[in-house]
């Protein structure tokens, strides 16, 4: 009986893992296949689709997405750091209210935020704002609460005694921020910035309202295309874009993100 249960458990685990990985494997396979259909009959390998990626058709939206995500990551990183610092570290009066205000966009679905923003822009006659500027503004609204929350968490975990130790050793406020506080919360800030970059780069529900022909992001270009055809070049686009995200994460990690979290020392 016990044996049967444990076999069932392992089977279900394997099945779920297969379910999780299957679509990823299928896309990778399709990106090397001459047709969009993936069969288990042997197929010839081709790198043709990856070659197609370098055309303007894919390069332009990629560069747009890259530009937007970079600006969004930088902006929401700086704003989120300042906001979290002021609220958590300086303990401003009314900080609870301010924090709930800053985090309130999190409880509104993206598609609703998207409608609201595009409606607002057309109401005030700023349709010319659509495309990159509107996308940046909307993505900052999306990313800022996440970044603020992440930085606030690392500030809340910051041992106030470290600050006091630096102070009693003669460090003034700016010196303490520079030498103690910022190095300590750096991992939190960097993961916030990475996260902001990724959610901007991959975003669909907000962007779908705000792009303009000729000024579209990569994911929106892809889904618009997907509605008509399952061209295998799409597989190549997707795989390449995932590889790009992995590179970004790797780079941020290298500068001293997540796993560089400093353990011990001040337990």
């Amino acid at each position: 009986m016990t044996r049967v249960i444990s076999i069932l458990f392992w089977l279900s685990l394997a099945a779920v893992l297969a379910f999780i990985t299957l679509p990823l494997l299928v896309v990778v396979a399709a990106s090397f296949s001459p047709t969009a259909t993936v069969t288990f009959q042997p197929f010839e390998w081709t790198f043709r689709w990856y070659g197609d990626l370098l055309s303007n058709r894919w390069l332009d939206p990629f560069l747009t997405s890259l530009k937007i995500a970079t600006v969004v990551a930088a902006t929401s990183g700086v704003l989120g750091l300042l906001a979290a610092y002021c609220i958590v570290y300086e303990r401003l009066p009314g900080s609870d209210v301010l924090m709930s205000y800053l985090l309130s966009p999190l409880s509104v679905p993206q598609i609703v935020k998207g409608v609201a923003i595009v409606l607002f822009l057309s109401m005030i006659g700023f349709q010319g704002f659509l495309g990159t500027p509107a996308l940046i503004a909307a993505h900052v609204v999306l990313a800022l609460p996440f970044v603020t929350r992440m930085v606030a968490t690392s500030l809340a975990n910051f041992d106030a005694n470290l600050d006091r130790a630096a102070q009693i050793l003669g460090a003034g406020k700016l010196q303490r921020i520079r030498h103690v506080l910022l190095p300590m919360i750096k991992p939190g800030v960097l993961s916030g910035v990475t996260f902001a970059f990724i959610i901007s780069f991959n975003n669909i529900p907000l962007s779908v309202f705000l792009v303009r022909p000729g000024d579209s992001t990569l994911p929106i270009t892809v889904i618009n295309y997907l509605e008509y055809s399952l061209d295998p070049v799409m597989a190549a686009v997707n795989v390449a874009s995932m590889a790009f995200i992995l590179v970004v994460i790797f780079l941020f990690e290298k500068i001293g993100g997540f796993s560089a979290q400093i353990h011990g020392g001040s337990k």
Partner: peptide, 28 residues
């Protein structure tokens, strides 16, 4: 506090985890 010229040893040590021992001692 930063201008009192007083030393303080904390219960939880409060060593700067991102600095070496030398850097910690040199901080003041």
């Amino acid at each position: 506090p930063e201008r009192r010229n007083i030393g303080l040893v904390f219960q939880n040590y409060a060593l700067f985890p991102h600095m070496t021992v030398n850097e910690n001692v040199a901080f003041g």
